[in-house]
């Protein structure tokens, strides 16, 4: 897979985050599936996407903090995993892909802030020159696309060229599952568990144990 083509496809998927429709295509589990399908390994794409989804489950684009970009993290994680694993052992690739994803998510959040500042500038341009409405709208779309491309392309190039030394830390799928599940569980508990819903949580745990025994 050509890295540039992958980065362009990934940047288009990322447009769903704000610029086009918000249909949920950029959510890590969906983007992971798409990127997995591109590389011919949907199950690994779903696995990585699902675990990154659990880590970024509570992400919401509001509030004063710089929110890490969970959608970008999902795309970076799965994309760089497939690029890394083509020339490196699985456990090393998994570790580096997750590190890229989390760091990329934080950088994406910062880039998001700059994109907002630029969009405000476009708005001021429009206020001065009203006939530029459609030009400003299109420029906003291009900004969103370029934000994605600037974030994804360098990471994908790095993932494509890097050869991981054997002394590098490794991460097994099981350990990643444990970390993803623990963050996902805490996100779920924080978001959904109240006095009125605690019974349903207990019901869910009971069903899990029952399914386990059966």
């Amino acid at each position: 897979m050509n890295v540039f083509v992958l980065a362009i496809i990934a940047a288009i998927i990322l447009l769903d985050k704000y610029a086009v429709g918000e249909f949920g295509v950029s959510q890590p589990i969906i983007s992971g599936t798409i990127i997995g399908a591109i590389f011919g390994d949907i199950s690994s794409g779903i696995f990585l996407g699902a675990l990154l989804q659990l880590i970024f489950l509570g992400e919401s684009p509001f509030g004063g903090d710089i929110e890490p970009d969970g959608q970008a993290a999902g795309i970076i994680g799965t994309g760089s995993y497939f690029l890394l694993v083509s020339s490196n052992p699985l456990e090393y690739s998994l570790f580096l892909a997750i590190v890229f994803a989390l760091v990329g998510g934080i950088i994406g959040g910062v880039l998001n802030m700059y994109a907002h500042v630029y969009n405000e500038k476009l708005y001021r341009v429009f206020m001065e020159k009203k006939h530029l409405l459609y030009v400003c709208h299109f420029a906003g779309l291009v900004t969103a696309f370029l934000r994605g491309l600037c974030l994804l392309l360098p990471i994908f190039i790095l993932a494509h060229i890097v050869t991981i030394p054997r002394a590098f830390p490794q991460l097994t799928k099981e350990l990643l599952m444990i970390i993803g599940l623990s963050v996902g569980l805490s996100n779920g508990l924080y978001l959904f568990v109240k006095k009125s819903t605690i019974l349903y949580l207990c019901g869910g745990i009971a069903c899990s144990l029952l399914l386990f025994v059966l």
């Binding site: 599940l181 569980l185 109240k194 819903t197």
Partner: peptide
Amino acid sequence: EILGALFTGLLFILIAFKINYLLL
């Protein structure tokens, strides 16, 4: 909210009976 709470509980079906999972 109810569905979210129920499926948070159902996340436990993803665990395996291994010592490592005590880290959860």
